[in-house]
Simulated assay, not measured.
Amino acid sequence: MSGVIPHAQPPPDPRHDKPVHPQSLWRWRHNPLYRYTDRLQGWIALALLLLVPVLGLGAMFIAGGAAQHHYRAAAEHRKETLHRTRAVLTHDAPGHPEPGSAEARETRYPATVRFTDPDGRTRTAKTDVPPGLGAGRSVHVWVDKDGAIAEPPMPDAQIRSRTMGWALIAFVTVTLAGAAAYRCATVVLRRRNLAEWDTEWAETAPRWTTSP
């Protein structure tokens, strides 16, 4: 036979030869074909399976608490620096094509209003108002120190929504980081396994392929 050493081939997958037993899913189960890297991969999987939910929940509480504190502080600051006053429409606001619908209740149209700023001066400006309001109807607006209409402080419902959003983002981020860590570990360990198979096959193959 030729003295050329064939390429090393990994051992056959035992799943092709017999049904998969639930215990065979644990990589640290006793098996003569398993290497320490296989068991290491199993321990990494178990560690991540236990740690990711705990770290994810912790990240949710931390991110959610920080977001809630930030948005509430910003809302309180706007309440302290802005002035809430009553404004009167100078013209009729546009009507909605579907009065009384859910969309109509959420829709706002720009309209010109007249109001008094903190210095007592009468001003006119445009602000968003519900559809269908007639001239002379009043709405509340928030005015800054320069007398310009400003965005109102964030309501509690919006603060809760954004807080939950940041908490969810934190949990998903930790989960994806755990999945990425496991993927990197499996790639590194697999390359190490293949390199070891090549080395051992180079030592064993000559005894199989060389004629006596």
Results as ranks from 00 to 15, higher is better:
Met1Lys: 09
Met1Phe: 14
Gly3His: 12
Val4Gly: 01
Ile5Ala: 07
Pro10Ser: 09
Pro12Gln: 01
Lys18Gln: 08
Val20Phe: 12
Ser24Leu: 00
Arg27Leu: 15
Trp28Val: 12
Arg35Gly: 05
Tyr36Leu: 09
Thr37His: 02
Asp38Ala: 13
Asp38Met: 11
Leu40Glu: 02
Leu40Gly: 11
Gln41Tyr: 02
Gln41Ile: 13
Gly42Thr: 11
Ile44Pro: 00
Ile44Met: 12
Ala45Phe: 00
Leu46Phe: 11
Leu51Asn: 08
Val52Trp: 14
Pro53Met: 09
Pro53Trp: 12
Val54Met: 06
Leu55Glu: 03
Leu57Cys: 14
Gly64Pro: 02
Ala75Gln: 06
Glu76Lys: 14
His77Cys: 00
His77Gln: 13
Leu82Thr: 12
His83Leu: 02
Arg84Gly: 06
Arg84Phe: 13
Val88Ala: 10
Leu89Ile: 01
Asp92Ser: 03
Pro97Trp: 02
Ser101Ile: 05
Ala102Leu: 03
Glu106Arg: 15
Tyr109Glu: 12
Ala111Phe: 02
Thr116His: 06
Pro118His: 04
Thr122Val: 15
Thr122Arg: 15
Thr124Ile: 07
Thr124Cys: 06
Ala125Lys: 01
Pro130Trp: 08
Pro130Asp: 15
Gly132Ile: 14
Gly134Asn: 12
Ser138Ile: 09
Ser138Met: 09
Ser138His: 06
Val139Glu: 03
Val141Leu: 01
Val143Lys: 10
Asp146Lys: 10
Gly147Lys: 03
Ala148Tyr: 10
Met154Val: 13
Gln158Asp: 14
Arg160Asp: 14
Arg160Ile: 06
Arg160Trp: 15
Arg162Ser: 11
Arg162Trp: 14
Thr163Ala: 07
Met164Phe: 13
Met164Ser: 03
Trp166Glu: 08
Trp166Gly: 05
Trp166Gln: 04
Leu168Asp: 07
Leu168Trp: 15
Leu168Ile: 13
Phe171His: 08
Thr173Gly: 04
Thr173Ile: 01
Thr175Lys: 09
Thr175Tyr: 10
Thr175Asp: 05
Gly178Glu: 08
Gly178Ile: 04
Ala181Val: 04
Tyr182Thr: 08
Ala185Met: 05
Ala185Trp: 06
Thr186Val: 11
Val187Cys: 01
Val187Glu: 07
Arg191Asn: 15
Glu196Tyr: 14
Trp197Met: 02
Thr199Leu: 07
Thr199Asn: 08
Glu200Val: 10
Ala202His: 02
Thr204Asn: 01
Trp208Arg: 09
Thr210Tyr: 15
